[in-house]
Simulated assay, not measured.
Amino acid sequence: MDEAALRQRASEVHASATLIDTQGVGVLLPHVHLAQPEFEGRSHIDRALAGGLTAMNTTIGVGGIASGVDDLRALLNAMYGYQVYFRLHADKLIQIETVAEIETAKRTGRLGIIFGVQNIAPKIDGDLTLLWNLHKLGLRVAQFTHNDRNALGCGCLEDDDTGLTQFGKAAVMEMNRIGLLVDLAHGGMKTALDAINYSETPIIISHANARGLTPHRRNATDEVIRALATRGGVIGVTFYSPFCQAVGGGRPTVANVVDHIAYIADLVGIDHVGLGSDQFESESEVRYAAFGAQFADTQRGFSRETVYAEGLERVECLPSLTAELAKRGFADEDIRKILGDNHLRLFASVWK
Rank of each mutant, 00 (worst) to 15 (best):
residue 93 L to M: 09
residue 104 T to L: 14
residue 142 A to M: 09
residue 155 G to R: 03
residue 105 A to S: 15
residue 163 G to N: 10
residue 181 L to F: 05
residue 173 M to Y: 09
residue 77 N to Q: 12
residue 92 K to H: 08
residue 139 L to A: 10
residue 79 M to D: 01
residue 76 L to C: 12
residue 177 R to I: 07
residue 137 L to N: 06
residue 101 E to F: 10
residue 78 A to I: 00
residue 77 N to V: 07
residue 160 D to M: 06
residue 151 A to C: 04
residue 127 D to F: 06
residue 136 K to D: 08
residue 87 R to Y: 06
residue 135 H to S: 10
residue 79 M to I: 09
residue 117 V to Y: 01
residue 139 L to M: 15
residue 150 N to P: 10
residue 161 D to Y: 04
residue 164 L to I: 11
residue 119 N to C: 11
residue 176 N to E: 04
residue 106 K to S: 06
residue 109 G to D: 07
residue 145 T to K: 08
residue 82 Y to N: 00
residue 161 D to N: 06
residue 182 V to F: 03
residue 156 C to S: 12
residue 170 A to M: 14
residue 169 K to F: 13
residue 114 I to H: 00
residue 89 H to Y: 15
residue 166 Q to N: 10
residue 83 Q to T: 09
residue 170 A to F: 03
residue 115 F to P: 02
residue 132 W to G: 08
residue 161 D to Q: 06
residue 182 V to N: 09
residue 122 P to Q: 12
residue 140 R to L: 09
residue 127 D to W: 05
residue 79 M to V: 05
residue 184 L to S: 05
residue 145 T to F: 03
residue 94 I to F: 05
residue 80 Y to H: 11
residue 174 E to C: 02
residue 118 Q to M: 05
residue 185 A to E: 07
residue 134 L to N: 03
residue 174 E to Q: 13
residue 141 V to Y: 05
residue 121 A to Y: 02
residue 88 L to A: 14
residue 88 L to Q: 15
residue 172 V to K: 03
residue 153 G to W: 04
residue 119 N to E: 15
residue 119 N to Q: 15
residue 106 K to M: 01
residue 97 E to F: 04
residue 136 K to M: 10
residue 86 F to N: 00
residue 160 D to A: 12
residue 154 C to I: 06
residue 142 A to S: 11
residue 151 A to M: 14
residue 137 L to R: 08
residue 118 Q to K: 13
residue 185 A to G: 05
residue 156 C to Y: 02
residue 90 A to T: 07
residue 127 D to Q: 13
residue 184 L to G: 00
residue 151 A to Q: 11
residue 111 L to C: 06
residue 182 V to A: 13
residue 142 A to E: 07
residue 183 D to S: 14
residue 157 L to Q: 09
residue 97 E to N: 14
residue 173 M to E: 15
residue 117 V to H: 01
residue 178 I to C: 04
residue 176 N to K: 06
residue 104 T to I: 12
residue 156 C to I: 02
residue 171 A to W: 10
residue 84 V to K: 14
residue 129 T to G: 14
residue 85 Y to L: 01
residue 135 H to I: 01
residue 84 V to S: 04
residue 176 N to Q: 04
residue 112 G to S: 11
residue 118 Q to G: 04
residue 135 H to A: 08
residue 152 L to W: 03
residue 178 I to G: 01
residue 138 G to N: 09
residue 173 M to I: 14
residue 101 E to H: 12
residue 180 L to C: 07
residue 173 M to C: 07
residue 139 L to D: 06
residue 77 N to F: 06
residue 95 Q to S: 08
residue 179 G to P: 04
residue 87 R to F: 04
residue 131 L to D: 10
residue 100 A to W: 06
residue 128 L to T: 11
residue 94 I to R: 15
residue 99 V to Q: 04
residue 147 N to R: 02
residue 144 F to M: 15
residue 151 A to T: 13
residue 162 T to R: 15
residue 93 L to E: 06
residue 184 L to Y: 05
residue 97 E to L: 03
residue 91 D to H: 13
residue 119 N to I: 07
residue 92 K to V: 07
residue 87 R to G: 14
residue 165 T to R: 13
residue 83 Q to K: 08
residue 92 K to T: 07
residue 79 M to P: 00
residue 121 A to N: 05
residue 158 E to G: 03
residue 183 D to L: 14
residue 125 D to W: 02
residue 103 E to N: 09
residue 176 N to A: 07
residue 107 R to L: 09
